[in-house]
Design a protein around this nucleic acid. Structure first.
Length: 424
RNA sequence: GUGGGUGUAGCUCAGGUGGUAGAGCACUGGAUUGUGGUUCCAGCUGUCGUGGGUUCGAGUCCCAUCAUCCACCCCA
């Protein structure tokens, strides 16, 4: 009995066209991050489960309900990383990286969360993260938002997204705020939606995030978090905003914006879009001044963001309109099998002297069919190396995308002709 | 984790009340024996997601299961 295998739930094969889009996004992040002198760090996918329990907070959903954790052969509890910041902070501590330097780092890779899959939400998903350690001033908060803005600008999606911004203060301040919020909501508990009623006991601050419109109405009269945040923190937040204003980066102050992980402090931000349904966050981050110390390092401030590459790819695809994906720039065909060696020689020549993507038609068949394959490849040129050409060491160059007479040139001129008309 | 929708050819989808599967696109060949994208003609393609049940008979009804999508939840 034959078995049809499928990817396991929430995992997916990313086929070439989508893969090209993901690569474009990752390349853009890499280029921009390097222009800010961020350095790449590569981190393991597998970590001690405890790192996330402590780092993200045991009560968070990502840890308590969604973590891929298992016992290793020797009995230690391991987990596939649900995010990158905890690993990055661990590396900072392990290698004492914050002692001599103030590292600005970035990483890319898969993260794993056992959630119910939806478009834009997979159990294995791709993130690019950036983290800066040792900086307590407002300029670094601004810098990370500037990085994001540059990336999304280059990708041409700034019009599709909004930068949300909030100041959630320190853990101690949030504890005070939590008390005040509960005090306000408890008497009118019955008016809340059932999820929010549940969160009133478990994690009251997340009620701010509720999508229930009635609950949001009630929250308008709730005490604002700003009043519980220290003056120093509020002033720093104002400085961040001035920097953003100076750089003409648009943002929206969103008092209800809170974070799912416990390590966040003070500035939090998030780029959202209205084009992806419920999975609207494409990049989010903030400050986490206590995390390094929590993981056993000396007190070191930190700020960072994580971008959801899969979601950005969906957004990009929606903005593209007609697809312009092509596989090759040059498509080389012979007339018959006798010219395969000559075709190979032409291909070698073009590959050696240009960085064009060259495909050889390696199967026999009639000319029309070969031309159709050349067309489908998206190639700008078809090079015909048939018996007439091979005999005289020539190549016929046919323009596939523009009105232009095909020409037959000598072997040595091929690269020259292609290069002249190369503007991609 | 909760609720709902969908699953038929490679793709997009038709298939009132059960009677033994169809269209467009794609693909292959021809018109055009060495020239694609337009057109015309011909042809190919199916364990109707999977497993069970009801029935003389199931793509159609029932149950289960898997996948996928949407919302909730969560989050990037």
């Amino acid at each position: 009995m034959k078995r049809r295998y499928q990817p396991v739930r929430g995992m997916r094969d990313i086929l070439p066209e989508d893969s090209a889009r993901l690569t474009l996004i990752e390349d853009t992040f890499r280029d921009v991050l390097q222009s800010y002198s961020y350095e790449e760090i590569r981190l393991p996918v597998l970590e001690a489960k405890d790192l996330f329990d402590r780092g993200l907070g045991e009560a968070t959903d990502a840890v308590s309900k969604e973590m891929y954790s298992f016992e290793d052969r020797d009995g230690t509890d391991l987990a596939l990383r649900p995010e990158g910041t905890a690993s990055c902070a661990r590396a900072i501590v392990n290698h004492s990286m914050a002692h001599e330097d103030k590292p600005r780092l970035w990483y890319a890779g898969p993260m794993f969360r056992h959630e119910r899959p939806q478009s834009g939400r997979y159990r294995q998903f791709q993130q690019v993260g950036a983290e800066a350690f040792g900086y307590s001033g407002p300029a670094i908060d601004y810098e990370l938002m500037s990085v994001g803005t540059d990336v999304f600008g280059r990708l041409g999606i700034l019009d599709e997204i909004t930068l949300l911004l909030n100041n959630i203060g320190s853990a101690a301040e949030r504890a005070l705020y939590r008390g005040a919020l509960v005090e306000y909501l408890l008497p009118i508990e019955d008016d809340l939606d059932s999820d929010s009623r549940h969160r009133l006991k478990a994690n009251p601050i997340r009620i701010l995030d509720s999508k229930n419109s009635r609950t949001q109405e009630i929250l308008e009269q709730a005490p604002p978090i700003e009043e519980f945040v220290s003056q120093e923190s509020n002033e720093k937040f104002a400085a961040v905003r001035r920097l953003l204003d100076g750089a003409n980066i648009e943002y929206q102050i969103t008092p209800r914006l809170v974070r799912g992980f416990d390590y966040y402090t003070d500035t939090v931000f998030e780029w959202v879009t209205d084009k992806l349904g419920a999975q609207d966050a494409i990049c989010a981050g903030g400050r986490y001044d206590g995390l390094i110390e929590l993981l056993g390092g000396k007190p070191t401030p930190g700020v960072g963001f994580a971008a959801g590459i899969d979601r950005i790819a969906i957004l990009l695809e929606q903005c593209e309109g007609s697809s312009k994906y092509d596989k090759a720039d040059v498509y080389i065909i012979a007339h018959s099998d006798e010219q395969q060696e000559y075709v190979a020689e032409v291909a070698r020549q073009v590959r050696r002297h240009t960085n064009l993507r060259v495909r050889e038609h390696t199967e026999s068949g009639r000319m029309g069919a070969k031309m159709r394959w050349a067309d489908k490849s998206g190639a700008k040129w078809a090079l015909i190396a048939g018996d007439a050409e091979a005999a005289k060491r020539e190549v016929t160059i046919k323009w596939m995308r523009v009105e232009r007479e095909q020409t037959t040139v000598s072997f040595d001129q091929v690269v020259e002709v292609l290069s002249e008309n190369w503007e991609k």
